[in-house]
Amino acid sequence: NRMHLVCPMNTSPHVDPQKSGHEVWEEFSHSFTPAVREVVEFAKKIPGFRDLSQHDQVSLLKAGTFEVLVVRFASLFDVKDRTVTFLGGKKYSIDTLRAMGAGDLLNSMFDFSEKLMNLGLSEEEMSLFTAVVLVSADRSGIENVNSVEALQETLIRALRSLITKNHPNESAIFTKLLLKLPDLRSLNNMHSEQLLAFKVH
C-alpha cells in the first residue's frame, strides 16, 4: 500500500510511509507553492490584468493556475526519453511512474507537451499564449465577464499578430495554439479528479 505522488510538482514521487496524510499534503503544498507564486507574479505583469476586479483576478488564477503550470512545465515531459523530471531534478521513466500508479493523465500530459513543444514557440510567444490561457472569460465565478472578455480578445489579437509576424509561412500555428485551450481544460478536469481521489484516500 505504499503511496506515491506522481505529480512532477513534487521534489520526488516517493512518499515517506512514516508521515501522516496531513504531513504528506503539507510537504506537497510546500513544493508547488513557489510555482503558484510565480504564476501570480506572471499574471500581475499581463497588461490590464491588474485593472480587473480583485474578485476576478482571484477567480482567473484559481481556475487557470494548473493550466498555466502545464504550459510552463511542458519541458519537464521528455517525449524522446519517455521521462518526467520532478522538481527535485531527478528523472523518472513513464514505466516507473505507471508502476507507481500514474494513469491516463500522465499519457495526456505527454501528448499535450509533445504537441506544444513541436510548435517551436519563442519565449515571447509562449508567454503571450500563457496569458491567453489565464485570461478566459468563461471561467466559473467571473463577476465582470465583459472586462475579462475585452482583455482576452486583446491578448488573442496580440498573439495572432505576433505569430503571424514570426511565422509568415505557418498560418496554422495560431489555430493549433487556440485548439490547445480545450485540451488544457480537459487536462485540468482530469487533474481535479486525481486530486479528489488523493484527498479521499
Binding site: V36, V40, R50, K62, T65, S192
Partner: peptide, 27 residues
C-alpha cells in the same frame, strides 16, 4: 469537486501573492 483550487489551499496562496499589489492599488 467543484472548487479544486480552494481544496488545494491555492486560493490562500493566490490571495497572499496578490495582496501586496492590490493594497498598492487601494492606496
Amino acid at each position: 469537486f467543484s472548487d479544486p483550487a480552494s481544496n488545494l489551499g491555492l486560493e490562500d496562496i493566490i490571495r497572499k501573492a496578490l495582496m501586496g499589489n492590490l493594497e498598492e492599488r487601494q492606496d
